[in-house]
Simulated scan of single mutants.
Amino acid sequence: MNDDVSPIPAAASAATIPTAHPAVPPSAWDRYQPWRRTAEILGWVILFGVNAVAGSLTTLMDIRRAGLDIPNWAPPVWEGSSCLVALALVPALVWYTRQVPFHVDTWRRALSLHLLGSVAWSVAHVTGMVAIRKAVYASLGESYDFSPWATEYVYEYLKDVRSYTYMVLWIEAYRLLLRRWQGEASVLTVADDVPEPVVPERPERFLVRKLGKEFLIAAAEVEWLQASSNYVNLHLRGRDYPLRTTMASIETQLDPARFVRVHRSYMVNLDCVGEIEPLESGDARITMSDGTRIPCSRRYRGALRQERRAA
């Protein structure tokens, strides 16, 4: 039989089934997951929609007070184009905040990168909204003037940098709320009067804090781990618990006879591996006992094969 494609033995498979734990009814967090993406998109749409309507109304009021000869359709075009382009840029901003997270020891670097990010975001935002305005004005037989360009870009940036800041804070606050709701893990610390070992002690349990409550999860029950920004998600029984650490750090603490690195972003519990399927590229695809598929890069494939044989 090919060593790379081998389902786990029946005994090992049975050992990985959490029979000691009764079925847990779906929590509010579990029920939210199927609707999460819809809720997030709808939240952004409502936010920018309300902003566009409110901005249009206040601008119309200011125009009437000043007695300016500007048609009523102009303010909705201005506000609508701005909000529409900002909404289209949300996925890029969400991605960027994952790449540049704020952390206590790296906040200065993150702040500098976000300052550069705000400039790029503003340029894209202004360019897009001006293009929409020019197109709408042209369709109505009018001309939209955006000059001098350099001065107008600076003026718009001074407004956009505030919007960028608010959006980043909104995203990070939402992520913090999700982590608190989902449950955030930490390694149990030893007492202050106990000397630290030369070699980091392998944690047998992780402490999880969830909505003001604390409970323990056994390290041996973690099925797989995935790096996510400045967190590592511990996956067990269909749930993820973020642990504030790096994959390189947690790798040195977990039992190497049980946990194996298979990708720069993944580690697996050998007891929970179902089968390994080699790919033509030289990489592999791991199917876990719960059906989850995890990538295995060629760099770690040899070590995984060796550990499987030893097991």
Results as ranks from 00 to 15, higher is better:
1 M>G: 13
1 M>N: 06
2 N>Q: 09
7 P>C: 08
9 P>C: 08
16 T>M: 08
18 P>G: 05
19 T>M: 13
21 H>W: 00
21 H>D: 04
23 A>M: 07
27 S>R: 08
29 W>G: 04
30 D>V: 11
30 D>L: 02
31 R>W: 10
32 Y>W: 14
35 W>S: 05
38 T>L: 13
40 E>Y: 09
40 E>G: 02
40 E>Q: 09
42 L>V: 06
48 F>V: 03
49 G>K: 07
50 V>T: 12
50 V>W: 11
52 A>L: 05
54 A>Y: 12
58 T>I: 14
59 T>C: 00
59 T>I: 11
63 I>Q: 01
68 L>H: 11
68 L>I: 05
69 D>T: 10
69 D>C: 02
73 W>N: 01
74 A>K: 07
76 P>V: 08
80 G>C: 02
85 V>R: 06
95 W>Q: 11
99 Q>R: 15
100 V>N: 02
103 H>D: 13
103 H>M: 04
104 V>M: 06
108 R>V: 15
109 R>Y: 04
110 A>V: 07
113 L>T: 04
114 H>P: 12
117 G>M: 06
117 G>H: 11
118 S>C: 07
132 I>D: 01
136 V>H: 00
138 A>G: 12
139 S>H: 03
139 S>V: 04
139 S>Y: 04
143 S>Q: 12
144 Y>F: 15
152 E>L: 09
159 K>V: 12
160 D>Q: 11
161 V>T: 13
165 T>V: 14
166 Y>T: 13
171 I>Y: 10
173 A>E: 07
176 L>Y: 10
178 L>Y: 07
180 R>P: 03
182 Q>S: 13
182 Q>D: 05
183 G>K: 12
187 V>E: 03
192 D>P: 15
193 D>Y: 07
194 V>Q: 08
207 L>P: 15
209 R>L: 08
211 L>I: 15
212 G>C: 05
212 G>W: 02
217 I>S: 03
217 I>K: 03
219 A>V: 14
220 A>D: 09
220 A>K: 12
224 W>L: 03
225 L>Q: 01
231 Y>R: 09
233 N>T: 08
234 L>A: 08
235 H>W: 11
236 L>W: 01
241 Y>D: 00
242 P>H: 14
242 P>N: 14
243 L>I: 04
248 A>W: 02
249 S>I: 10
252 T>C: 07
253 Q>S: 05
256 P>T: 11
257 A>L: 07
259 F>H: 04
259 F>I: 04
267 M>L: 11
271 D>F: 01
274 G>C: 09
279 L>I: 08
286 I>Y: 01
287 T>R: 12
287 T>K: 13
288 M>K: 06
289 S>A: 14
294 I>D: 01
300 Y>W: 08
301 R>K: 12
304 L>M: 01
307 E>P: 00
310 A>V: 03
311 A>G: 12
